[in-house]
Computed example of a mutant assay.
Amino acid sequence: MSVFTTDINNAQKNLSALADNIVAHNDHIIVRRPDNKNVVIMSEAEFNSWQEMVHLLSTEANRQDLEQSLAQADRGQTHTLTPAESAHLHAQD
């Protein structure tokens, strides 16, 4: 992932090409505007990923669960789900 900057005039003239590059290379583009009222353009997939992360970190309980899971993975305490276990978990959603 790369972050590029451009000014508003260039962004307006080249929006289609910029959008193609954003999607193809998972880039972000900061569009500089007057008075530092800049905007960021990113792909919808990247935006959705960010939204999911914000949701996952939105409560203290979720943050603690994620930290605990990462610590377990660092210690090698992982378990690969069987197809039956996976189906059971998805049935609870």
Score class of each variant (00 low, 15 high):
45 A>H: 13
50 W>L: 01
5 T>H: 11
60 E>G: 12
69 S>L: 11
78 T>A: 09
35 D>Q: 01
51 Q>D: 09
3 V>P: 02
14 N>E: 07
93 D>Q: 13
38 N>K: 01
6 T>F: 01
80 T>Q: 13
65 D>L: 06
46 E>T: 03
47 F>I: 01
80 T>P: 04
42 M>C: 10
16 S>G: 05
61 A>C: 07
22 I>N: 12
78 T>R: 04
39 V>W: 07
78 T>L: 05
61 A>N: 11
46 E>S: 11
3 V>G: 00
55 H>E: 00
22 I>V: 11
13 K>H: 13
77 Q>V: 03
12 Q>N: 12
33 R>N: 10
61 A>Q: 15
32 R>V: 10
2 S>M: 05
51 Q>R: 13
87 A>V: 02
38 N>D: 15
37 K>D: 08
86 S>T: 09
49 S>F: 14
18 L>P: 01
42 M>N: 08
11 A>P: 07
68 Q>F: 10
89 L>F: 14
38 N>I: 04
6 T>H: 03
71 A>I: 08
61 A>T: 14
23 V>I: 15
20 D>Q: 15
70 L>K: 10
86 S>I: 05
17 A>C: 02
29 I>A: 00
62 N>A: 12
14 N>T: 07
76 G>F: 06
53 M>H: 04
29 I>T: 05
21 N>L: 14
86 S>Q: 14
9 N>K: 15
69 S>E: 12
61 A>E: 15
5 T>C: 03
17 A>D: 14
11 A>Y: 15
73 A>F: 10
67 E>A: 14
8 I>G: 00
13 K>Q: 12
15 L>A: 07
10 N>H: 15
2 S>P: 04
65 D>Q: 13
42 M>D: 09
81 L>T: 00
9 N>G: 08
74 D>K: 15
53 M>C: 09
63 R>I: 03
13 K>V: 01
2 S>F: 01
84 A>M: 07
69 S>M: 10
20 D>A: 09
1 M>K: 07
91 A>F: 02
61 A>H: 08
21 N>M: 11
29 I>F: 12
74 D>H: 10
39 V>A: 04
18 L>M: 11
34 P>G: 02
89 L>N: 04
77 Q>A: 09
27 D>A: 09
93 D>E: 13
49 S>E: 15
58 S>A: 13
75 R>F: 08
77 Q>F: 02
66 L>S: 11
87 A>K: 06
